Amino acid sequence: MNFDFSQLTSTDAFKLLSSVVVPRPIAWVVSQSPQGRLNAAPFSFFNVVSSDPPIVALGIGPRGGELKDTSRNILATGEFVINVASAGLAEQMNRTSVDYIADVNELTRAGLSTEPSLLVAPPRIAQSPAALECRVWQVLEAAPQRVIVLARVVAMYLCDEAILNPQRFHVDTPSLRLLGRMHGAGWYAHTNNLFQMVTPDADDDPAVRPAQGH
């Protein structure tokens, strides 16, 4: 069956996209209002889109026809922190997805604490094993009250236990036990069922481009 997205409602388009683009990494975003109020919320329309410069993309939809607190804070301050969601923090992450009023600190409600960031004003979640400090690079208005934030990663926190070789920047990714977002409401995936494939040896294939020097 083929689907013409111009003939679909946004709800139906979401159902299809979120069912096949999986697993999606979770951006557990901490933002801060100009008045200093903290907000935390998870988003799965997120990924790294460039390493040079280091750019991440974050899609934030509306809630009740208005900008979400996260969008409002990011647009006002230009800074935010993306924390990763590990398996041991699943319940706390899920708790911060609740639509609290703007004055409520989701971190407090979820029993989480914070640590200061290195370069940006919003803090990171202390219990999260890794965090990306971000500054807005560009904002696209995809639809009314729906924004796509392109942000430059200016600093990163990574727990010492996950660093295999700090000189070579080797990370023990499986040890982070990160969660991924799956299809439908409430479905998640663990990232510990892994396999590895070596790049095929194509030295004798004339159709393959020669290796480029660095």
Rank of each mutant, 00 (worst) to 15 (best):
N94P: 05
V171D: 01
D99I: 11
G61L: 06
I163N: 03
W28Y: 02
P54R: 08
A40W: 04
P123C: 12
Q32R: 13
R72H: 00
V208R: 09
M197D: 12
I55C: 04
S31H: 00
Q145D: 10
L118N: 14
Q167D: 15
S117K: 06
I55F: 04
M197I: 15
L164V: 08
A40V: 12
A110Y: 04
L179Y: 00
I74K: 01
A57P: 05
A151C: 01
S33Y: 05
H170E: 14
V22H: 01
N165V: 07
F43I: 05
G186D: 03
T77V: 09
F46Y: 06
V56S: 01
M1Y: 13
D160W: 06
S128F: 03
T173C: 07
A131N: 09
K15L: 10
V84P: 01
V98G: 10
A87K: 13
M197H: 12
N94A: 14
G61M: 05
G61S: 08
Q32L: 12
P123M: 13
A121Q: 15
Q138R: 08
V56T: 03
D103K: 11
R37A: 14
A27K: 02
V84R: 04
T108C: 11
S117A: 13
E161G: 14
T199A: 14
S51E: 13
S50K: 03
E79M: 03
G78V: 04
Q35V: 11
E141G: 02
Y157W: 11
F80D: 01
C134I: 04
L140S: 10
A27L: 00
R209W: 11
P166Y: 12
V81I: 09
P122V: 13
V29S: 02
D52L: 13
P34A: 03
V104L: 00
A57S: 11
L164M: 08
N73V: 07
S175I: 11
F80L: 00
G184Q: 15
L164A: 09
A155T: 00
D12C: 09
V98R: 13
E106I: 10
N192R: 12
E133V: 02
G64S: 06
P62L: 08
Y188A: 03
N165P: 01
E161K: 15
V56H: 00
Q196R: 14
R168C: 11
G59M: 05
A151F: 00
I55D: 02
A57V: 10
F5Q: 06
V198C: 12
F169E: 08
R24L: 06
R124Q: 07
Q145L: 08
Q145V: 08
S33F: 04
P144T: 03
R109L: 11
N105Y: 07
E79R: 05
E91F: 14
M197Q: 14
S175N: 09
Y100S: 08
S113G: 10
